[in-house]
Design a binder for these strands. Sequence first.
DNA 1: TAGAGTGTGTAGTACTTAATACACATCATG
DNA 2: CATGATGTGTATTAAGTACTACACACTCTA
Lengths: 116, 116
Amino acid sequence: MSFGRHIREARERLNAEDRAFSLRQVALRVGIEPAYLSKIERDVFQPPSEDVIVKLAAELKEDEDILLAMAGKLSTELQNVILQRPKLFGELLRQLKSAPDHAILRIAREIRDGDW
Amino acid sequence: MSFGRHIREARERLNAEDRAFSLRQVALRVGIEPAYLSKIERDVFQPPSEDVIVKLAAELKEDEDILLAMAGKLSTELQNVILQRPKLFGELLRQLKSAPDHAILRIAREIRDGDW
DNA sequence: TAGAGTGTGTAGTACTTAATACACATCATG
DNA sequence: CATGATGTGTATTAAGTACTACACACTCTA
């Protein structure tokens, strides 16, 4: 699904319960023009900047990483993690490119449990 | 070290052995204006686009990922790996953010040896 | 010592990104 | 039925990105 359609659906779900989630009010809280949000939601414009996406995610209770990914963007936070050690993470990511989800999850869990 | 200085030093090392690595000739082979490369090497201009950096890396026998990182860029190839599964890789990268190098290397090796 | 090759200065430009401003028609509600 | 709120169309723009074009001065060497 497109970024815009996803946002619109998320907002409309919230708006059904709470009138504070009209396009105009959300735009106001996020700090952008209503007309701009309108075009984003209809995919007339490209997805907005990282900043705006992050605010939208918070406002609409959506996952930031996923929203950014739908916009074809990677958070500068995660980019910087890699850019600190490009060789190391480059290798790792290429290894993991075609690994099954469960393998990646397992690794994340192992590391969280700190067994190295 | 800055991107520009690094490029200049790499090129000058090669140029000492082989006159085919003058600024002009490298620029020609990479497909950019010599004046442009001159400014890049002196950090008068920002680092060039991903495309140009990749060609420079090949030309100067430098590591692409590292050169891109020095330019503050992450290859679209690696970005896409993450964007395919943003939630999964997001979690993993945040776990690995402060992991020691050897731990990351170990994981990469384990995966290469396919033990899942 | 002429000519080829070298690096660099000044100036300008095409394209993309990320939006704003304002008017307009429709809807709903008190 | 007037008023406030809603979503949208048209037009425009400020700033950044990624360069090119061309002229110039210097150096090396055949």
